[in-house]
Amino acid sequence: MKTVLHVSSPHPDDQNHAAVNTLNLIGDEAVYSEGDDVVVLANGAGVRMFVDTTAAHPEMIERLADRGVALRACRNALYGMGATDDDLLPGVSGVPSGSGELARLQDDGFGYIKAP
């Protein structure tokens, strides 16, 4: 299974909801197996969930990273808010373009889930 969850909402409750949905997905043994690829990609104002000074629920991000979920943040959105890769929480990596990363992942066969 290969799945990308897309987060663009600026609202901390929506970002938390996306993190909980991801934890639920990887906890569902009926669909998730060790070694499956799961990515949470944030762009737009959603990147705030991955920035250490604005993240509402950094402990959730840490849990995702610890479980092997790939966490990616759009650098265009980061730069727009005056942040860089250095401001990202541990386990989060920057990608040049959120839209480009979504297109690449879907071209690689990832299923798409729009998280709040």
Rank of each mutant, 00 (worst) to 15 (best):
A45M: 14
D37H: 13
A19H: 13
V95H: 04
L41W: 00
H57C: 05
A56R: 02
V95Y: 00
A45P: 14
I61R: 00
L25P: 00
A115W: 03
K114M: 11
A65L: 03
E101I: 01
Y79L: 13
P12K: 01
A56W: 00
L105A: 11
V47Y: 01
A70Y: 00
V7Y: 03
S33T: 10
L64T: 03
R75V: 11
G100H: 05
A18E: 02
V4G: 07
N21I: 05
E29A: 15
L71Q: 05
A18V: 15
P10Q: 04
A45Q: 15
R48I: 01
E101Q: 14
R104V: 08
L105E: 06
V4E: 03
D28L: 09
G68A: 06
R63K: 15
G35K: 08
Y112T: 10
I61H: 03
P90S: 04
E62V: 07
D86F: 02
F110K: 07
C74V: 10
T54A: 07
N43Y: 14
A42I: 05
R72Y: 00
V7N: 02
Q106N: 13
E101W: 00
P10V: 09
F50E: 05
K2N: 07
G80A: 15
V31N: 07
V95C: 06
D66H: 10
G109T: 04
D36E: 07
A103G: 07
D36I: 09
A103I: 13
M81E: 09
V7S: 10
V4R: 02
G111N: 13
S97M: 06
L71F: 05
D52K: 15
A77M: 08
T3C: 10
I26Y: 05
I26D: 01
D13R: 14
V7H: 02
A65C: 01
A45L: 15
C74H: 06
V40S: 07
A45T: 12
N16E: 13
S97R: 01
V39M: 09
R104M: 11
P10Y: 01
A77N: 11
E59I: 01
P12T: 05
R48W: 04
G100A: 09
E29R: 14
V92F: 03
C74F: 08
A73V: 05
V20W: 03
L89W: 02
T84D: 07
K114P: 12
L78F: 08
E29N: 14
S8E: 10
L23D: 04
L105Q: 10
M1S: 13
G91Q: 02
G111R: 11
S8F: 08
G109D: 05
P96N: 12
G91E: 04
G82C: 08
Y112D: 11
D87P: 10
H6I: 13
A55T: 03
D85C: 06
Q106K: 11
L5D: 03
A115Q: 08
S97A: 14
V69P: 02
K2W: 01
M60K: 14
A30E: 15
L102Y: 04
L71A: 06
A83V: 08
D108G: 09
L88E: 04
R72G: 00
V20R: 12
I61A: 04
A56S: 15
L64I: 04
E62G: 04
L25S: 06
D52P: 00
A30S: 14
L71D: 09
A18K: 01
D36G: 10
R75M: 09
A55D: 04
D36M: 06
G44V: 06
E34R: 13
P10F: 06
Y79I: 08
A70Q: 13
H57L: 02
